[in-house]
Write a protein that binds this DNA or RNA. Structure first.
Length: 259
DNA sequence: ATGGTCGTTGCACGA
């Protein structure tokens, strides 16, 4: 089973690139973030013609998450599901795909450590941890994949000195991701690659991509029963090249079939 | 060279 996550920065603007990528890479499951699509405009038909069923949780101009699957998509759930104001924005959707509870997550950006949005980001990550803890055991097959807007390690940014005091690298943000790992989640990409120089996001500005100025902020977190099935993972930086790319590249994980 | 580019129910703001 091939599972991937990709912040597409508008599924409307990116549909052609996404279709082309799906045909080439053939993931069984794709977690999508920043669809930026409101209700009723999700390109279900176009994706169905490529063999994908979809779970769409969008709100309009901003945010929006989705899951595409060729291996079934059952028991779709949106948000934290407890009437929390943290569900006001469309940032979380999950479904059971091929026997795994798969979440597509778009963690708030945070903007800057002084901004209210930064507090919102930390609250959102804590709500995610609580939601996992209340809903699952670390022994269950669970994946949380998405744009975490956190670089877990200094070596996950091109120049730690350039990020002094900036969001995405502060201790509270990293602690919030580590709390998910302490609960039982494994950073699957990190299983296969030593830290350093491998990024999933590059600013559109200033030729950052060509200068290698990126960050690894898109993660596939999996419970051990899933993570131990992972045979390969990579960041498809080719998808960041060419005409009208997203500013994020997809992260791909291959899972061995259950025997 | 201290910015630079994208996206959007855009003409300002979020990333």
């Amino acid at each position: 089973m091939r599972l991937a996550t990709w912040n597409v920065n508008s599924l409307k603007a990116r549909l052609e690139r996404v279709e082309e990528w799906l045909e080439q890479v053939q993931p069984d499951v794709l977690c999508v973030q920043e669809t930026k699509l409101g209700p009723g405009v999700f390109p279900s038909m176009a994706l169905a013609s490529l063999g994908y069923e979809a779970a769409d949780h969008g709100e309009g101009r901003w945010n929006g998450v989705a899951i595409l699957s060729k291996v079934g998509i059952e028991d779709v759930q949106t948000g934290f599901g407890v009437g929390s104001p943290l569900d006001d924005e469309a940032r979380l959707v999950s479904a059971v795909c091929g026997g795994i509870r798969v979440f597509s997550a778009y963690v708030p950006n945070g903007r800057s450590p002084e901004d209210d949005h930064y507090r919102y980001k930390l609250e959102w990550l804590e709500a995610l941890r609580v939601h996992l803890d209340r809903s699952f055991s670390p022994a269950d097959p669970v994946v949380v994949a998405g744009d975490f807007n956190v670089a877990p390690d200094d070596r996950d940014v091109y120049d730690p000195a350039a990020f002094e005091g900036a969001t995405h690298v502060t201790a509270p943000e990293r602690d919030a991701v580590r709390a998910l790992e302490d609960w039982g989640m494994v950073d699957v990409f990190r299983q296969h690659h030593e830290p350093g120089g491998l990024f999933s996001w590059w600013d559109y500005r200033a030729g950052s991509f060509h200068k290698g100025k990126g960050m690894r902020i898109d993660l596939v977190l999996a419970t051990p029963v899933v993570a131990e099935r992972a045979t390969m993972s990579l960041i498809d930086r080719n998808a960041r090249k060419g005409k009208s790319p997203s500013d994020h590249a997809p992260v791909i994980v291959d899972l061995a079939d259950l025997t």
